[in-house]
């Protein structure tokens, strides 16, 4: 199987590659439009700031490449946020694959720390991406912005308020947590995307 990780100006891309290697998948990291279009599976990972990463995607033309993909695409962390309609981070319009909008966490009290950093549970709707994952399993999060709940939400996490832990529309999947840093259960998610999503 030909798995491609989209290379752009976001950090943390190699950690997803390492996660894939641990489950026996050799992916190609590339920003080349033809290679991305030709892949069986496309992963769109990263950590970064929304407006600067969006600017790069526009400039490089990768924005149109991603939106037009027909094979399974998997956004992780900032990848999920960039696939939404708009982000409050830098007040920028994003790819619009999901109509959900990205907002900043606003603490209700001193116990609500931002960034949301650490392990939290995920309530999912049984989507194949979460096959074999229980509602009690914990995933690792690091983020200050979140995608609101909407019609593409397939899993939620409750931190300050319930928000989209995962989104799906057609061939596009995305998670806010870091499967590559979420121990064995995170590797299960990566495996599910590779093996079960077609």
């Amino acid at each position: 199987m030909n798995v491609v990780i989209i290379k752009y100006n976001a950090g943390n891309i190699f950690s997803v590659d390492n996660g894939l290697k641990r489950i026996g998948i050799e992916a190609e990291i590339t920003g080349d439009a033809d290679k991305i279009r030709a892949a069986d599976k496309v992963i769109f990972p990263g950590v970064g700031e929304a407006s600067t990463t969006m600017a790069y995607l526009h400039q490089s033309g990768l924005d149109k490449v991603i939106v037009d993909l027909r094979q399974p695409v998997f956004g992780i962390c900032i990848g999920l946020q960039l696939m939404c309609a708009h982000s409050e981070e830098g007040n920028v319009d994003c790819l619009g694959i999901f109509e959900e909008r990205v907002k900043k966490f606003v603490p209700n009290n001193p116990a609500d720390k931002v960034p949301h950093m650490g392990w939290n549970t995920v309530q999912h709707n049984g989507n194949a991406l979460f096959s074999g994952v229980s509602q009690e399993d914990y995933f690792y999060y690091v983020h200050s912005f979140f995608a609101e709940k909407g019609k593409n939400t397939i899993a939620t996490t409750d931190y300050i308020q319930p928000y989209s832990a995962a989104l799906q529309r057609d061939n596009f999947y995305a998670v806010q947590f870091h499967p590559e840093k979420s121990g064995a259960v995170g590797e299960r998610i990566l495996k599910n995307f590779i093996e079960l999503i077609n």
């Binding site: 190699f14 950690s15 390492n18 641990r22 690792y140 690091v142 870091h178 840093k181 121990g183 995170g186």
Partner: peptide
Amino acid sequence: IARHINIP
């Protein structure tokens, strides 16, 4: 470490 360990 980054290659082998699956937690942060």
